[in-house]
Design a protein around this nucleic acid. Structure first.
Length: 196
DNA sequence: GTTAGGG
DNA sequence: CCCTAAC
């Protein structure tokens, strides 16, 4: 009867090719601290890595915060991705600017589309979405309602003191344009100034 | 036909 | 993004 230790099995087969050295370390720690039960937390996260490089400040902070010698142990489980992963194939073809996409509801707004929306707001204001659609988004899949909703979301994200987490990473220049356009084009129905 | 706002 | 009351 064959009975072999887990150490005879290639580690990458057991754990599913850890992405880097620290992850390998984590896998072994998981084995030791789990009563001998192997855990393979990386089976589900093979394509879950962000393509961009880690920001320098984050990396250095991680190193200074807890080194390998000081009870270092990272949280288990698959890492949350910071950038939404687009699985829709039509995204690569038609993008958001034509009839090449078969979807009525296309995926997330691109920074280019946001910039165009800012152009439209600066040109048409915020209460003439149908005019803006014909003038700035004539062939886009974005509907009049989409334009209105997107602008509402941008205001929610980039104006006021509510600093919410934004899943669409826009460069500072574009954010400033959004804020300036929002200031110059307040909604026609201002919030009631009465306190209660 | 459009818009604003809630869902 | 959808739905719809209210223009």
């Amino acid at each position: 009867m064959e009975f072999y230790s887990v150490y005879d099995v290639p580690i990458d087969q057991l754990l599913g090719v850890p992405p880097d050295e620290s992850d390998l370390h984590e896998c072994w720690e998981g084995f030791g601290s789990n009563g001998g039960q192997l855990v393979a937390p990386y089976c589900l996260s093979t394509h879950d890595e962000t393509p961009d490089t880690t920001p320098p400040e984050t990396e250095s902070a991680a190193h200074t915060a807890d080194g390998p010698e000081s009870g270092w142990r990272r949280k288990r489980g698959p890492r949350k991705r910071r950038v939404p992963l687009c699985t829709d194939q039509s995204w690569h073809l038609g993008n958001h600017f034509g009839e090449t996409s078969h979807r009525t509801n296309n995926s997330h707004w691109t920074p280019e589309e946001v910039a165009m929306l800012v152009d439209g707001v600066e040109d048409c204001g915020v209460a003439r979405w149908s005019v803006m659609k014909k003038k700035w988004f004539p062939t886009s899949v974005r509907t009049v309602g989409n334009l209105k909703d997107k602008w509402r979301n941008l205001l929610e994200s980039y104006t006021g003191n509510a600093e919410r987490s934004c899943y669409l990473h826009l460069d500072k220049k574009l954010i400033e344009r959004i804020q300036k356009a929002a200031f110059n084009n307040p909604y026609p129905k201002p919030r009631c100034t009465d306190e209660w």
